[in-house]
Design a protein around this nucleic acid. Structure first.
Lengths: 125, 125
DNA sequence: CTAGAACCTGACATTGACGTCAGAGGCAAG
DNA sequence: CTTGCCTCTGACGTCAATGTCAGGTTCTAG
């Protein structure tokens, strides 16, 4: 499949795919004329990359742990494995923090709702 | 308290505090000579702003919902309240996604650990 | 009074993941 | 063979939060 097809299937821009390749996150074979060709598997790979971006990882970090994804057995890639566990912990802490923030917002929402209800009740219609 | 003091208490840079003021997230009184003065309350406010930044809100969005924080009763600020609930939902979805990503990483970690254990067992010492 | 720290404004620099444009070539349909 | 869409490389633009620097004022300690 060509780059436009992969882009639409994975839901990213063509620009992003070229950027991923530049950053070493994605590889492609080239046709005789130099156009990138991808296998169906790459769709999932791109979605996974997107997922990692959404979790706050940088392209550099993603590049470091992808070998661990591609060949968990090849050689025991200590660097990648370290990164993998580090990022797992980071995400864990981030979730914790987000939950606290969500609670703070919930309290604010409740407080505001109470005041609004009061106003509505105080001067109806 | 002056800006340097607030910065160190809240754990942010002086530059950031000036930026927050510029963006309407923080206000200050000025001394006769024009230096910013803050009350103790501002420490908590700055920490809360940081929390919102960490949750992925932009300064613009934060500015839109802060009125709702400052005066939940004043006038029923529909704009701010809307923003508040929107961001609450966004954070909720983000947490969901992060949890899924964490699970994906856990599976990867397990797979890698298994392979590493195998290697260790297969050729010991 | 004076040195040095802290403050002021204003402006330019940075970083990352892209968007966008230019100029050129590739490919399927008519 | 042409039309039109897709692709290529390379380069510059963007945006947001913040770093950093310059040139000047203010405050504090001795």
């Amino acid at each position: 499949m060509r780059i436009g097809e992969l882009a639409s299937q994975a839901g990213v821009s063509v620009r992003s795919l070229r950027y991923y390749e530049e950053r070493g996150l994605l590889s492609s074979t080239r046709s005789a004329s130099g156009q990138r060709r991808y296998t169906d598997d790459e769709v999932e790979r791109v979605r996974f990359i997107q997922r990692l971006y959404a979790a706050g990882l940088s392209s550099r970090t993603i590049a470091e742990l992808l070998p661990c994804v591609d060949s968990p057995s090849e050689r025991n890639d200590d660097e990648g494995f370290e990164r993998l566990t580090q990022e797992r912990e980071r995400i864990d802490r981030h979730i914790e923090e987000l939950c606290e923030t969500r609670e703070a917002l919930d309290r604010l929402i409740d407080a505001n709702r109470a005041h609004r209800a009061q106003l509505a009740g105080g001067s109806p219609a």
